[in-house]
């Protein structure tokens, strides 16, 4: 009474119906990162210096603040998806994998939350 081979267990079940969404969102956020980080790099190069006053004045503008908020969402989302694949490839033990993905989700949401709060605080006058 075995459970069959690993191929035999999954044969006939069809696709998992979830991988394509992950793959697509990885690309969508990659496009977001491409646009937003390029804008951010060019904006940094355009600043006369990196003093507190210069950066605050730049960040107070609604376009800069919105751009940075979108950048934070896009890069943290992309990093979360990418690191998930890394975890799934190298962590094989179920408990450790679950713990790693849980920690990754907490870190991604926590980091993005902190970044968004910092930008909003500066934009609304720290």
């Amino acid at each position: 009474m075995g459970n069959g081979t690993s191929v035999g267990r999954v044969r006939g079940l069809g696709s998992a119906h979830s991988g394509a969404h992950h793959w697509l969102v990885q690309r969508f956020t990659a496009i977001g990162n491409l646009v937003l980080t390029s804008w951010f790099a060019v904006s940094l190069l355009g600043l006369p210096n990196f003093s507190y006053v210069t950066l605050r004045d730049w960040l107070v503008s609604p376009v800069s603040a919105t751009g940075l908020c979108l950048l934070i969402i896009s890069v943290f989302w992309h990093a979360r998806l990418g690191l998930q694949v890394v975890v799934e490839d190298y962590v094989h033990e179920h408990g450790a994998k679950f713990a790693a993905i849980a920690a990754l989700n907490l870190a991604a949401f926590g980091g993005a939350g902190f970044g968004l709060f910092s930008v909003i605080r500066l934009a609304l006058g720290a």
Partner: peptide, 10 residues
Amino acid sequence: LLCWLGCLAS
């Protein structure tokens, strides 16, 4: 990025 933003916001 978070360090930079956090220091600016502080």
